[in-house]
């Protein structure tokens, strides 16, 4: 097999997971303010068991995004999540770098 940058690419992983019949959600950074760890457009893919590939923050908020994603997979309704140090939940999950990010979480695949 060729060594390619796509081995662990979240969208490639998501396609494989869907073909395997797994239920999958995709989280995408849609907006950032200040110093954000991952650029707009970055993806994290999550399956219903909480397995994941990619990143939306370099580790700061992935845990929270994964649990929201499992909820999105079960209920089908997409969500927009905001994270930042200014947020009242900062004591729980937040960005130590001082930036803010907005993340869109949606179910992948057909219905």
């Amino acid at each position: 097999m060729l060594q390619t940058p796509y081995e662990n690419d979240p969208l490639m992983v998501a396609e494989r997971w869907l073909r395997d019949g797994r239920k999958v959600a995709i989280a995408t950074v849609i907006e950032t303010w200040g110093s954000a760890p991952r650029p707009v457009g970055s993806h994290l893919v999550i399956d219903v068991d909480g397995n994941f590939h990619g990143s939306v923050s370099g580790g700061c908020v992935e845990g929270a995004v994964i649990s929201e994603a499992v909820d999105v997979i079960e209920h089908g309704q997409a969500k927009v999540l905001d994270f930042g140090v200014a947020d009242e939940t900062a004591w729980r999950v937040g960005l130590s770098c001082g930036g803010r990010i907005r993340i869109h979480v949606a179910k992948l695949g057909d219905a």
Binding site: Y6, L11, M12, L18, I26, A106, L108, G109
Partner: peptide
């Protein structure tokens, strides 16, 4: 995103073509 669109997106990326999704 639908499965067919995801496959088309990935196929374009593997062909080194610029591709865009609008959600």
């Amino acid at each position: 995103m639908r499965t067919g669109d995801l496959s088309a997106l990935n196929a374009a990326r593997l062909r080194r073509e610029a591709v865009l999704s609008i959600t």
